[in-house]
């Protein structure tokens, strides 16, 4: 019990509280649009977009010459839109399947991003391929906090890592988007033809969903890196899909899974090695992805709705 109290004491607030909150916000912000992507069989759009974020951020850095969150978000958003348009062009022109067009576009753009990073002098600033791929959740600590009371101290609150309010804002935007267009999203996801017939702009809505995905990817990218974002897009919604047949319940499940992955992942990464006598922590972002994968594995084996309709229990 004493352990727990010290574990949740001042040091916890300073070192672990903000990464955990940021992890939760990132996971939920990605899981929410991920639900719709999954049902629309566009799960890999998240994959493509999260790769494309890198050239967008590098491009924004090359244009502005500074590491600043806002231009980078815009750069990454532009890159995502360019990628979606390129995929569409290649699909039409080459008449190839969407997967191949996607693979072609995101590997190429990713390669451009890596090359730009390597040939331009970014050594003076905190941007490198490793960071872009893996994120650095652990470094997002709250220096000025000296205990739980800091949560009420405006001066300390002002020194929160900027990723936290940014992600909170993005999450709020995504929640609003889904709440406002709930009916339209639901209908167009399950029956696009019907949605068209009753006057919903399905293409515009689909594009808006991609933009929301891109924004979530960019905001979360900073914290957890570009590859692990994919886990947040796919795993919690996929696991939730195996739990229920109702969209609203699926979304609740996915949020719950996302939160559990973020908390357990961070705790295991930060404190887990200590239980085995190792003084070093392991990658929190990687651990969060691993936990979300384990949850998915469990639901694949035991989820009440894991089978297709008509597929027997032992099929």
């Amino acid at each position: 019990m004493d352990d727990l109290i010290t574990a949740l004491g001042a040091e916890f607030v300073q070192l672990s509280l903000t990464p955990i909150v940021i992890g939760i916000l990132a996971a939920v912000a990605c899981a929410l649009p991920g639900n719709f992507l999954l049902l629309r069989r566009q799960a890999l759009i998240g994959d493509a977009i999260s790769h494309v974020v890198l050239p967008g951020i590098v491009g924004a850095f090359l244009v502005t010459g500074a590491i600043d969150a806002f231009p980078m978000m815009i750069g990454a958003g532009c890159a995502a839109i360019v990628a979606v348009i390129l995929i569409e062009i290649i699909k039409r022109l080459g008449r190839v399947e969407p997967g191949a067009a996607m693979g072609l576009v995101f590997t190429t753009l990713f390669a451009v991003g890596v090359l730009f990073l390597e040939i331009t002098d970014t050594s003076s600033v905190h941007i490198d391929v490793q960071h872009a791929l893996l994120g650095n959740l652990e470094s997002l600590i709250w220096f000025d906090a000296d205990g739980w009371q800091s949560l009420l101290d405006p001066a300390a609150l002002a020194t929160l890592p900027p990723q936290l309010p940014r992600l909170a804002l993005v999450l709020l935007g995504i929640v609003l988007f889904i709440a406002l267009f709930w009916k339209e999203l639901k209908i167009s996801t399950f029956d696009a033809a019907f949605a068209d017939a009753i006057g919903i702009h399905t293409r515009l809505l689909g594009f808006a969903l991609v933009v929301a995905t891109a924004i979530a990817a960019v905001a979360a990218f900073d914290a957890v890196g570009s590859i692990i974002v994919i886990a947040m897009f796919v795993c919690p919604p996929a696991a939730a899909r195996l739990m229920t047949n109702q969209l609203s319940r699926q979304i609740s499940w996915s949020v719950a899974f996302a939160v559990i992955s973020a908390i357990l992942g961070y705790v295991f990464a930060g404190y887990g090695p200590g239980w085995f006598g190792s003084p070093y922590a392991v990658s929190a972002a990687g651990m969060i992805a691993t936990i979300s994968g384990l949850i998915l594995l469990l639901t694949c084996m035991f989820g009440p709705q894991r089978k297709r309709i008509g597929q027997g229990a032992e099929a």
């Binding site: 795993c235 996929a238 990658s283 972002a285 691993t290």
Partner: peptide
């Protein structure tokens, strides 16, 4: 998407 990202995450760990 799930296998790709989870294996990658595990690899990073």
């Amino acid at each position: 998407g799930a296998v790709l990202s989870v294996f990658f995450g595990l690899g990073i760990v």
